[in-house]
């Protein structure tokens, strides 16, 4: 565990908590893409199946369980409890265009052709593009509440911090994972336009 990795995980956790609190406090999920949230639930489910097969650390297991619980909790709030506030008219990104290529790519490019490894690879690929329905929704409506912007900033920062962690691990531990690195860079690049707007608007006002 290095400082970049820890900050990345904190940022990830913060993003998920911001989103849950926003929905809970305002009793509304307006402006949030249910499709992105479903993709994230698929990502965590596919990746964290190793909870049953391998133990790494208490930190690792607890964080995985928290991410899973928060993700399914968000889906429950969006699609059941505060369903009436879900803005589905603006949430129209075709997620099959993300899922199918990720399935195909994970079958072709993976570390090992085994079910768990392919699911892990699929989750890495899908995570890199899972935010697209949300970014599409923001660009379609032309606005995002500031709390939604904070959520996106924290969620985008998480993978950017992981990139620094991978650079650190490459030098400190001679350890790297090409699949995670390439997907992580793609993921971070997708947020660049948003980061730019967030920072300039945050500094100069609207």
């Amino acid at each position: 565990m290095n400082v970049f990795r820890l900050l990345g995980d904190i940022s990830h956790l913060l993003a998920i908590i911001i989103l849950l609190l926003k929905i809970w406090k305002t009793r509304s999920c307006a402006g949030i893409s249910g499709r992105s949230q479903v993709l994230f639930a698929v990502v965590y489910t596919a990746r964290y199946l190793d909870l049953f097969t391998s133990y790494i650390s208490a930190y690792n297991s607890i964080m995985k369980l928290v991410f899973l619980a928060a993700s399914y909790g968000t889906i429950y709030l969006m699609f059941i409890k505060f369903k009436a506030s879900y803005d589905h008219n603006h949430d129209t990104f075709r997620i099959e265009f993300l899922i199918l290529p990720c399935v195909l790519l994970s079958l072709l490019i993976n570390h090992e052709f085994s079910p768990l490894e392919i699911l892990w690879t699929f989750s890495i690929y899908l995570e890199s593009v899972a935010i697209l329905p949300q970014l599409f929704m923001v660009s379609k409506t032309g606005e995002a509440e500031s709390i939604t912007s904070h959520y996106l900033f924290a969620l985008g920062s998480y993978r950017a911090l992981y990139i620094l962690n991978w650079i650190y691990r490459y030098y400190a531990e001679s350890h790297y994972d090409v699949i995670a690195i390439v997907a992580g860079i793609v993921q971070t690049v997708l947020y660049c336009d948003f980061f730019y707007l967030y920072i300039t608007k945050g500094i100069y006002g609207q």
Partner: peptide
């Protein structure tokens, strides 16, 4: 250099 997946990450 190890190419193993970084499975200790989240």
């Amino acid at each position: 250099v190890s190419l193993k997946p970084l499975k200790d990450e989240l």
